[in-house]
Design a protein around this nucleic acid. Structure first.
Lengths: 153, 153
DNA sequence: TGAGGTATGTCAAAATGCTGACATGGAGAA
DNA sequence: TTCTCCATGTCAGCATTTTGACATACCTCA
């Protein structure tokens, strides 16, 4: 009952392991595992690191904005933020001056921890990048972006 | 304190959102969300579907083998298997004839559910693939594979 | 025969994430 | 102004997943 149209499945996958989805899942799992491992030495989890990195890029982000940036729910990010705040890595005003959103900022200690962890994370990224021909990297980045967009990510 | 070596970071990322890791995470999150949505209509979760697909490809896989194939722990896959078994979608012998591993198989009902869900999943995959130039697809698959391997996935 | 190593299945506990729900604050239309 | 709509922060409950641990079964080697 399959309509074999070369337009739909031009890659002619033999089985599931050759599907883009499976490969994507596999690569993501490998990355997640590698990051978990190196970040543990810095006392950070992947969501925590993501949060710090986002705040370094754009200080003052709210909980909801951070959640969208890290691809988790507001509730999950809220837990992460509480943890980071308890550890003194980020700071949020006790009261919001405009809406309900309270802008978060890295503390000096948070910046130090991020800097330390960053080198470890970048080493993983470098290891990953080294596996693909450097000429293809820009296309790879573009394709990942397009796929995410096509699925409403 | 950064050593700028073009060999290490040849893509000259401006910020985190241009890193391969971030894009990978984003694409994976988008895929996961899309799959969650379409699979819910078939009464399946993503891990459950993954498990069924693996069993269709290679019947008789054990719990531990399925766990490795789906990139989760044995414990997690065990929960998934129990659920599928309770729903009558898979069957496992009550006792192992060789080691401790009990080979799992799809039931006719499991095969039907898989067939039904597959079309929905493939539609998502097609939507994702359509976003990337078809000439680049083989390279994309290869690069994802290489990256996963490089990180010990 | 027995010891050591490896792989598996399973239990218990904790961490993590999500869904549902509700109250608050702000912007815009009636 | 008042009403409506939307985004945000937060609480509670539930589901999922992981970590840690242990017992069992097989294999290999002495």
């Amino acid at each position: 009952m399959e309509n074999r149209e070369p337009v739909d499945l031009p890659h002619a996958a033999q089985d599931v392991t050759e599907h883009v989805g499976y490969r994507l899942k596999r690569a993501h799992a490998a990355l997640r595992g590698a990051l978990d491992q190196v970040l543990r030495e810095h006392g950070l989890t992947v969501p925590q690191y993501s949060c710090l990195e986002l705040l370094a890029l754009r200080p003052g982000l709210s909980n909801a904005e951070l959640a969208r940036g890290a691809f988790v729910t507001r509730q999950s990010m809220n837990v992460v933020l509480r943890g980071l705040q308890d550890d003194g890595l980020i700071a949020r005003p006790a009261t919001a001056d405009h809406g309900r959103a309270r802008p978060a900022h890295l503390t000096p200690e948070g910046q130090r921890r991020l800097d330390a962890a960053r080198s470890a994370v970048y080493a993983v990224e470098t290891r990953m990048i080294a596996a693909v021909p450097s000429a293809r990297l820009p296309a790879l980045l573009a394709d990942l972006e397009r796929m995410a967009e096509a699925l409403g990510g």
